[in-house]
């Protein structure tokens, strides 16, 4: 079982943090990864970080998701134009 998604810690406040996943941010609990630092990548399951990852490891997962993110963001900007 168990979906877990990598995200980056943008703000750290005690045991809770704001974590960024693609275009989404969410508060994530850090109780299980006390070593976490601002800017770290974490693997998130059910609102808790379950593991710190280095950036390269996280990016490997994101690369396997094979997202054509750049292109998508361009499109959304194009659509936002009047």
């Amino acid at each position: 079982m168990c979906l877990a998604v990598p995200g980056q810690v943008m703000q750290l406040d005690g045991t809770s943090a704001r974590v960024k996943f693609h275009g989404v941010e969410r508060v994530v609990q850090m109780d299980l990864v006390p070593e976490v630092k601002l800017g770290d990548w974490v693997l998130v399951h059910a609102g808790y970080a379950i593991q710190c990852m280095d950036e390269e490891e996280a990016r490997e997962t994101l690369a396997l998701l094979a997202q054509i993110e750049g292109e998508m963001e361009e499109q959304s900007r194009a659509e936002a134009k009047p």
Partner: peptide, 18 residues
């Protein structure tokens, strides 16, 4: 699959929530 346009925020939210 890779030609279907899905924006980052939508993909992110969908991944987080499964």
């Amino acid at each position: 699959e890779e030609t279907i346009p899905v924006r980052g925020a939508v993909r992110g939210a969908c991944e987080l929530l499964g």
